[in-house]
Design a protein around this nucleic acid. Structure first.
Length: 565
DNA sequence: ATAGGGTTAG
C-alpha cells in the first residue's frame, strides 16, 4: 500500500526512487529494487550508487559490478561514493580467492580517474586490501604510505588490518606512531592482545586507556572467557557500567562452553529479566557453545525458546540447532529440525551430513549425500570432506576413490588440502601406504602437517617404520613444536620393538608439552570431563572398574590392543 | 575503523 503511494511519486520526487531501492534491498527484494531503477529514464550517479549498494547488501557482487559497468556505458563518471561501495560489494559474496584481484582492478580504476585525493576512497581501499590475506596487507600498506594526508580512520584501518593477520607487532608500531588515538584505536589494540591470548598485556592496556566504552569492556570479558578464566570474566561483566546484548551473549556462551549449565541458564534468565530479547547472534553463539561442550540441556531449552520466536525461520539459527543436536549425539532431533525447515542452504545440508558422518552412520551419510544431489543442491568443499571421511571410517576405499575423482572432475574449484587429508587417511587405513604417499606428491598445493600426520598415523597402524621415518622428517620441519606427531612416532618404534628408537623420540619430546585431550559428558545438568589417567572424578574407582570390565569383554571377542608406552 | 554469529581431515 505504502509502496504504491510511493510509486506514484516516483517521477515527481527524485528522492523517492533511492529510498524505495534501499527499502527493497533491506527486505531482500532485489527484483523489485531493479524494477524501480529501470523505471527511471535518466538515472544519475547517486541512483547507480544506491543500486550498487543494494546489490552489495544482498551479496550479489557480480550484479554490483555490472551496474558499475552500466554506469560507465551511460557516460557517467563514478564519484567518491562509487568505489567504496564497489569495494564493499567484493567482500560480500564474491569468491574469496578472487578478492585480491578484484580489489586490484578497482584500485587501477581509482588511479585512472583520480579520485584518490578524497581520503574516503583510499581509506576503504586499505580496509578492503587488509581482508585479502598476506599479499593484501602489503598493498594496503603501500596505499597507506602513498597517502598525502591521513586521518584517524586511515591509521585505524591499517592497525585492524595487521591485527586481523595476527601481526600484532606491526599494529603496535603504528599505534605508537599515530598522532592521535581515539576509542577505536585503543579498542583495536586491546582486541589484538586478546586475540593473541595475552590477557596480561590486554589488562594493562585496559587500565592505561584514557577512556573505556562498552566495546572495550566486552572485548575484555570475551578475552577472559576465551582463556577460560570465568571468574575474571564475570567480575568485569558485573563491573561494566552499561550492557547490551553483546556482553550478555559473550558471558552466557562463555559459561556454556565451560559446561556450566546452571550459571549459563541463570544468566540467560537475568538477561531476559533485564528486558533484553536475544537476537540471532545470541542464540547462535549459545548453541555453538553448547555444541562445543556437549551441554545438551541448555541447548534443548534454547530450542524451546526458538520454537516460540520468529527465529525458528532463520536458516542460520536452525543450522546451529542441527549442529548442537548432532554434536550432542541426538541425530534424530537434528534430523527433525532439518526436515521441519522450509528453506535450507548448503551449510544446512553439510551440518547434518557431517553429523551423520561423525557418528559413524556412513551408509546414512552417503545416502544423504545422494539425496542432496538428487534435490539439486550444489555440494561444496565441506560436503566432500564429510563424504570422504565417511568412506574412510567405513573402510570403503573404492567408494572413496570414486567420490574423489567426482570431486576433481565436476567440482575442481572446491578441491582443498582437506580432501587430500581424507584420501590419505582412507588409503592409509586401507593399507595402501604407497598410493597415499604418491598422492601427496601429486598435490597441487603444499602438503601441510595434517597431511603428513595422517600418513604417519597410517604408518603406525601398519607398522611401517621406514616410511614413518621419512614422514617424521618432513613433519618436524613443518611443526617442530608438535608433540602429538612425536608421540605417534614413538608408538611406531614401540610397536616394532625398537626401544632405542623410543628413547630417542622421547628425549625430543621432553620439552614439548602435549595438551592432553579430554572428553566430556553431561549427566543431570552437570558436565563431567575426563583425561588420560585422570582420577579426579569422585566416582573414579567405579569408572575404572567399568572400563576394566569393558576391556575384558573386548578381549574376549578378539580385540588386540596396540602398543602403548 | 572497534565487541558476540552456521559446516572442514589426524
Amino acid at each position: 500500500m505504502q509502496a504504491q503511494i510511493m510509486k506514484a511519486n516516483l517521477h515527481q520526487d527524485p528522492f523517492v526512487a533511492p529510498k524505495l531501492i534501499s527499502a527493497f534491498s533491506i527486505c531482500h527484494q532485489m527484483p523489485l529494487a531493479v524494477k524501480i531503477f529501470n523505471q527511471i529514464q535518466e538515472p544519475n550517479v547517486h541512483l547507480y550508487n544506491t543500486l550498487m549498494r543494494a546489490f552489495a547488501h544482498n551479496s550479489q557482487y557480480s550484479a554490483a559490478f555490472s551496474t558499475f559497468f552500466d554506469l560507465q556505458e551511460n557516460v557517467l563518471f563514478p564519484d567518491n561514493y562509487t568505489y567504496p561501495i564497489l569495494l564493499k560489494a567484493c567482500c560480500s559474496g564474491g569468491p574469496s580467492h578472487l578478492l585480491l584481484r578484484q580489489v586490484q582492478m578497482i584500485h587501477t580504476h581509482i588511479e585512472k580517474f583520480g579520485f584518490y585525493s578524497d581520503i574516503f576512497v583510499p581509506n576503504s581501499l586499505i580496509d578492503t586490501y587488509s581482508k585479502c590475506g598476506k599479499l593484501g596487507i602489503v598493498s594496503a600498506m603501500k596505499v597507506f604510505d602513498s597517502m598525502p594526508e591521513r586521518d584517524t580512520v586511515s591509521w585505524n584501518s591499517m592497525i585492524t588490518g595487521f591485527i586481523k593477520m595476527g601481526k600484532l607487532e606491526d599494529a603496535h608500531k603504528l599505534f605508537d606512531k599515530m598522532p592521535y588515538r581515539d576509542m577505536v584505536s585503543w579498542n583495536s589494540m586491546l582486541d589484538g592482545f586478546v586475540k593473541a591470548g595475552d590477557m596480561n598485556s590486554a589488562f594493562q592496556l585496559f587500565q592505561t586507556m584514557p577512556d573505556r566504552n562498552i566495546v572495550s569492556w566486552s572485548t575484555m570479558v570475551w578475552g577472559y572467557c576465551k582463556i577460560g578464566d570465568m571468574d575474571m570474566a564475570k567480575f568485569l561483566f558485573e563491573k561494566m557500567p552499561v550492557k547490551n546484548l553483546v556482553p550478555w551473549t559473550i558471558i552466557i556462551s562463555g559459561y556454556a562452553e565451560k559446561g556450566c549449565a546452571k550459571e549459563a541458564f541463570s544468566l540467560y534468565d537475568r538477561m531476559e529479566r533485564a528486558g533484553l530479547r536475544p537476537d540471532d547472534a545470541t542464540l547462535i553463539s549459545i548453541l555453538a557453545a553448547c555444541a562445543e561442550s556437549g551441554l545438551f540441556s541448555l541447548g534443548k531449552k534454547i530450542h524451546l525458546k526458538i520454537k516460540r520466536s520468529k527465529f525458528r525461520h532463520s536458516i542460520q539459527v536452525c543450522n546451529a540447532l542441527i549442529d548442537m543436536y548432532a554434536k550432542c549425539g541426538d541425530l534424530s532431533d537434528a534430523s527433525s529440525v532439518f526436515e521441519e525447515m522450509t528453506e535450507r542452504n548448503v551449510v544446512t545440508w553439510n551440518t547434518l551430513l557431517q553429523g551423520l558422518a561423525m557418528h559413524g552412520n556412513c551408509e546414512k551419510a552417503l545416502s544423504f549425500f545422494s539425496r542432496m544431489t538428487r534435490e539439486g543442491i550444489e555440494p561444496d568443499g565441506v560436503t566432500f570432506v564429510s563424504v570422504l571421511s565417511s568412506c574412510s571410517h567405513a573402510g570403503l576405499v573404492d567408494e572413496g576413490r570414486h567420490y574423489f575423482s567426482l570431486l576433481k572432475r565436476d567440482y575442481g574449484s572446491a578441491l582443498q588440502v582437506e580432501h587430500y587429508g581424507c584420501m590419505v587417511d582412507l588409503l592409509g587405513r586401507g593399507g595402501h601406504l604407497k598410493e597415499a604417499f604418491e598422492l601427496i606428491k601429486t598435490m597441487p598445493m603444499e602438503p601441510n602437517a595434517i597431511i603428513w600426520g595422517t600418513l604417519l598415523g597410517a604408518c603406525r597402524m601398519h607398522s611401517n617404520v621406514e616410511l614413518a621415518e621419512e614422514v617424521v622428517d618432513r613433519l618436524v620441519q613443518l611443526e617442530p613444536k608438535d608433540a602429538g606427531s612425536l608421540a605417534i612416532f614413538s608408538n611406531i618404534y614401540a610397536a616394532a620393538g625398537d626401544w632405542d628408537g623410543v628413547a630417542k623420540v622421547r628425549s625430543k619430546m621432553r620439552d614439548v608439552y602435549k595438551q592432553p585431550g579430554a572428553s566430556s559428558i553431561e549427566i543431570d545438568d552437570e558436565v563431567h570431563e575426563f583425561r588420560v589417567s585422570d582420577t579426579a572424578h569422585p566416582e573414579s574407582s567405579r569408572i575404572y572398574h567399568m572400563v576394566d570390565r569393558l576391556k575384558q569383554h573386548l578381549e574376549q571377542v578378539g580385540y588386540v590392543p596396540r602398543a602403548h608406552c
